[in-house]
């Protein structure tokens, strides 16, 4: 798997659920994100308090259409969400105030992603 393989994002987000606070905050806020990872292998999945689901089983709080290399940088904390929008790597659909909520969930997702993406085997 390369660093920007959409499967890596899915795996990482599943791993993020080992952080109990992450799942609890998603549930408390009824927050869900539909990811559409563009690029060579476009992939759609949805993250909500129950986990990560293939496709888009129900409407989400936010829909992120994102390039894999952009999501990679966002999760590693190297690129802010609005900077990614301005740089044309990300389109966010949904109420803009929800984007600030997204920021609260990113650190846990980022930690899980870094654990996988930066591990020697996946480099």
């Amino acid at each position: 798997m390369t660093v920007q393989d959409p499967q890596l994002f899915i795996e990482a987000f599943r791993a993020a659920f080992s952080d109990a606070d992450f799942a609890a905050l998603l549930k408390e806020r009824e927050f869900s994100i539909q990811f559409v990872v563009t690029g060579d292998a476009p992939t759609a999945f949805l993250l909500d308090s129950d986990g990560v689901h293939d496709g888009a089983p129900h409407p989400a709080s936010l829909r992120l259409e994102v390039r894999p290399e952009t999501l990679h940088l966002i999760l590693l904390g190297q690129l802010g969400v609005t900077q990614a929008v301005v740089a044309r790597g990300l389109v966010v659909k949904g109420p803009v105030p929800q984007v600030r909520r997204l920021a609260d969930h990113l650190p846990a997702m980022g930690r899980a992603y870094a654990g996988l993406a930066l591990a020697p085997a996946s480099a």
């Binding site: 301005v86 990300l90 389109v91 966010v92 659909k93």
Partner: peptide, 12 residues
Amino acid sequence: LQAAYQADNMMP
């Protein structure tokens, strides 16, 4: 109103 609504629900 329509344009502003779009701007508040889509970035960019």
